[in-house]
Design a protein around this nucleic acid. Structure first.
Lengths: 232, 232, 232, 232
DNA sequence: AATGAATGAGACTTCATTCAT
DNA sequence: AATGAATGAAGTCTCATTCAT
């Protein structure tokens, strides 16, 4: 049961924030040795997360073993279980740090929908692909983990359908009687975009011409979404 | 994940039974003990497949163990390895037997696109959901397995994007200059429909009203697909 | 757990006699189909024995599987269990057919001891090595089987110590008061010869010069065995 | 039969304990928890070795299963594979710890050959039997393992033929022109003695009177070995 | 007589996880 | 905080052996 070894793209070297920082900031009276311990613990946690990111990317979710992560982090297998409850916990932590926040480009999409500018819409939809490219290394194991453990879906805000609600600028400008329909269609279009991007970028489907496909996607958005009321 | 090494082709139940029945019906010269043997083996294989289907559904792909399948089939674990090479082989066999053939409803979709009848289109799209409902129990473990082992994708014909090519009736009637675009949009719509159905049916998302969503999907198809040339 | 593959020496093609021959000779009234069955059974038995001899020789006792024997004999694994109870039974049968009878050369040794002729003694002892060479392919698996299942020793007459008693010609001519001692020493010398031959021939120890060693063995026999009374 | 892949050398108990004791005694700077860990691991290893010794003795080599050893040692089967790579590794470890060193009595035999004292020779040869008695429980499975896997012979120094070279005291005193012959005869006599002892002690052949046999063996040694030059 | 199917046991391996230190 | 030892469960594979046909 081998996992295809992917050629390693650039690793994000994000530092995953923790409550620890807040705690160590409680005041100058904090015994320094405690802080040393905490820093040590945090450093280990960081090494484990970096290692996990690398191994998840390389071997996929089911192909990754706690032992591999620990080895890559140069700590014992048991040490893995101090900051994390299990393999899924580590991945969720990575997801939250990297995928949870609403990507910036949705605001651009929203703005483009408001303006009704076809070129702007296409450009902002194209940014979607860029975002997927940047996060492709995590998206694959994440999808795998979610397929294996559907209940994890709740723990990740990466529910793309929800992004429809973030198109507040556009939705507000849609006539009230069309608003529900607009929201539903947005959801459907986002689902579609997500799948397209996943297949194009993460699965690396090279048989599809991105630009052509992007044209069609843009056109579908324009043809199906109610127009926003223009000021004025 | 090894390629199954057995020489014997892994026949789907239906095909297999048919072959056996045909042979035993050729005449009195057929050695009956051969058929008895085959029936015995086939019965065990079927018990294993049924058990696998049940356990895969209940525990997911990674949560299923060969031991569990064998126990549910009331055979020894070693017996599992007679007709199947491993867990994945059993799932693939189930997939092929249940998911491989192009579902009937695509032809209805094609016909509805040809006729341009909105009601017929909606009805045929609704059948999609019915098909997902019937196969929901397999779709979840299959998706999990495919997420974990992408190379298995080649072994299953369930590449939904390919269904676009089966809409020959509709595509033939689209004006030549629109045909490529029509095919691309069909692919995108099918991806969308697949995802919607998966979330609605397999993941059991109850927060979405199916009928409303179906209306929107139908409308999106109508708004984005070029009209077929009507005869006469 | 690999077994070194020996380069195959010439296989004996002995036909292993059975009571079957006697039975089929009971008279002309014997229904011929019974005899056909018996001949069939016997033929299978022979094929199994030949195959067993080959596989035992090639793979050693523990390295041999019933499946390998059956495959080499072109019969099913189950068919092996018709004429034999298990792997050891097949080997014992081979042993009895090949190793059980007192080898001819012991009589020569006896005669040489009687005559007191050093050259004859050396020549007859050398024949020992020849005998080992001829049976080397069976001796190795047999020793292995005996090491693993000491109780099998009783089933094989190949108890070399017993050969001392076959030196009746010599022992009869030893003065009565020396006879017990002579028998003991013969046993010890035969044990020694057996081990030497096994190491030289079966294990293929090439670091020992056979002729030199044979000289020493001969000398030890002469130095330690009481002289036989020469006929006046 | 794989070569053990562990990096750590497989120390015999005695050696190992000694190393640990020495290290823990080097001073107060030694981290004590290391020793505790090592003792824990070593204790388990010892329990496994003891259990293996018992089971090997009781069931023979091929009759012994790793599961049986682990059960007798009250550890999990997986724990067996921490200090040992497989069944053979455990047996080899036992062999090395118990059978590898040249037994003390060979020096006595050497001395007796030098002195030419018949009583001393007999006594030292008798010690051979004592040594076999002490190690009989291991010798049987060891011989079985060696019979099945001849290549293991290299891993054990128990090549009895080599003992001839350890009779340096005697061989040095043999006239130069007789020395090669003396060495060859020693080899033959040792082979003989080994087989005798094995049959008497390990196989428990009770039909032979040990004292009488010992007399004959002693006599054979005296009759066939060239005398050592006596000083002065 | 001969067979294919099935069994059960064991080997060896890998893993996630726990626990005493 | 960190670790090594140990566990138990499962996986895959290979055998000897039995049994219904």
């Amino acid at each position: 049961m081998e996992e295809p070894r992917r050629t390693g793209p650039t690793l994000t070297t994000t530092t995953y924030r923790r409550a620890v920082d807040a705690r160590s900031g409680t005041g100058p009276g904090t015994p320094p040795n405690l802080t040393v311990r905490e820093e040590l613990r945090e450093a280990t946690r960081q090494r484990l997360l970096s290692a996990a990111e690398e191994i998840f990317q390389r071997d996929g979710y089911s192909g990754t073993t706690v032992g591999n992560i620990a080895a890559a982090a140069n700590v014992s297998r048991a040490a893995f279980y101090l900051p994390f409850t299990d393999k899924a916990d580590a991945l969720i932590t990575l997801m939250r740090a990297n995928l949870a926040e609403t990507p910036e480009y949705w605001r651009e999409v929203d703005a483009a929908l408001v303006s009704g500018d076809r070129t702007a819409l296409r450009a902002s939809l194209r940014n979607t692909l860029t975002w997927y490219e940047q996060h492709a290394h995590l998206l694959r194991p994440v999808r795998e983990a979610l397929a294996a453990h559907p209940h994890l879906t709740q723990k990740v805000q990466g529910n793309f359908a929800r992004f429809a609600d973030e198109m507040a600028g556009y939705l507000d400008r849609v006539p009230a009687q069309d608003r529900d329909r607009a929201r539903l269609r947005l959801q459907l279009l986002i689902i579609q975009l997500d799948q397209l991007a996943y297949r194009l970028v993460v699965l690396g489907n090279t048989s599809i011409d991105r630009d052509v496909m992007l044209d069609e996607v843009t056109e579908i958005w324009r043809l199906t979404l109610p127009a926003a009321a223009q000021p004025g």
